[in-house]
Simulated scan of single mutants.
Amino acid sequence: MAATHSSLSVLSTDRAPLPVGPYAQAVKIGNLIFTSGCMPIDPQTNHVVSGGIEAQTKRALANLKGLLEGVGSEVGKVAKTTIFVKSMDDFATINGICAEFFGAHKAARSLVEVARLPKDVLFVIEAIAAE
């Protein structure tokens, strides 16, 4: 059985939904924070939000913000995001919401269409950020 190496710190916060599996909300090494995928789960109810891609994207981004701030970072310190989507047909909607969310900050980004996501959500985002 593996143990967490002393160079890594497992991070958690109550400002974002709990993981849906056996993994950390975020891990820190040096001054970098690596988040797990933030899903469009309402932290109050622990249920996926309804309302389609727009509502799910906004909720997942709000969860990312809560996670980052809860572990000592912020949206303006995000260096890279990876976004997983159910349909590339939602690309323009996602771009508009992300542009509003990140404002003048421009992080590197990958956006990938996948066959299926946990809980059948439409949008998941993970990030690498400075502390």
Rank of each mutant, 00 (worst) to 15 (best):
S9W: 10
G70L: 02
T82Y: 09
A129Y: 10
Y23G: 13
I125N: 03
T93R: 08
A99G: 11
F91Q: 14
I125A: 02
A108S: 14
G51W: 07
I83H: 08
E126C: 12
K119A: 10
M88G: 11
N95E: 15
Y23E: 14
K65T: 04
K106Q: 11
F102E: 09
R116E: 15
S50F: 01
A3K: 11
V71N: 07
R109N: 14
L117M: 10
L67K: 00
L64D: 00
G21F: 13
C38F: 04
G51L: 08
S7Y: 09
I97G: 07
N46T: 05
C98Y: 12
P22E: 15
L32V: 06
I33C: 07
F84M: 14
P118R: 06
D89S: 15
P118F: 05
Y23P: 09
D42M: 01
K58R: 11
A2Q: 14
V10N: 11
L117H: 06
K77W: 06
V124T: 04
T45H: 00
G96N: 14
P19Y: 03
K86L: 14
I128S: 01
D120V: 12
N31F: 09
T13V: 06
A60F: 07
I125P: 01
K28E: 14
I53P: 05
G70R: 03
L122D: 00
V112F: 13
P40C: 01
D14E: 04
H105G: 07
A55L: 09
S12C: 01
S50M: 10
K80N: 13
A55I: 07
A79G: 12
V78N: 08
D42A: 00
L68R: 05
V10I: 15
P43M: 00
N63F: 01
L18R: 07
H105P: 08
A62P: 02
L68N: 05
E126V: 09
R59P: 04
D120T: 12
L111I: 15
E113F: 12
A127V: 00
V78F: 09
V78R: 09
F84T: 08
A104T: 14
A24E: 12
V75Q: 07
P19R: 09
G103N: 03
D90E: 00
N63Y: 03
I29S: 12
R15K: 12
K65W: 02
V124Q: 02
F34P: 02
G66V: 06
L8G: 08
D90G: 03
T4V: 15
G21N: 13
D89A: 15
A129R: 08
L117D: 07
G96W: 11
Q56W: 02
T45V: 06
G52C: 00
D14L: 04
T57K: 06
H47W: 11
S6H: 08
H5W: 10
G96F: 13
A62R: 08
A60N: 02
Y23K: 12
P118G: 05
T45M: 03
T35P: 03
F123V: 08
Q25S: 04
I128E: 00
H105D: 09
V114S: 06
V10E: 14
C38D: 04
M88I: 15
F123E: 04
Q25V: 02
S12F: 05
D90R: 00
S6E: 10
A127M: 01
V75L: 12
N46P: 03
M39L: 15
D42N: 02
T35F: 01
G70V: 11
T82Q: 11
A115W: 13
A108D: 15
C98R: 15
Y23V: 14
P40G: 04
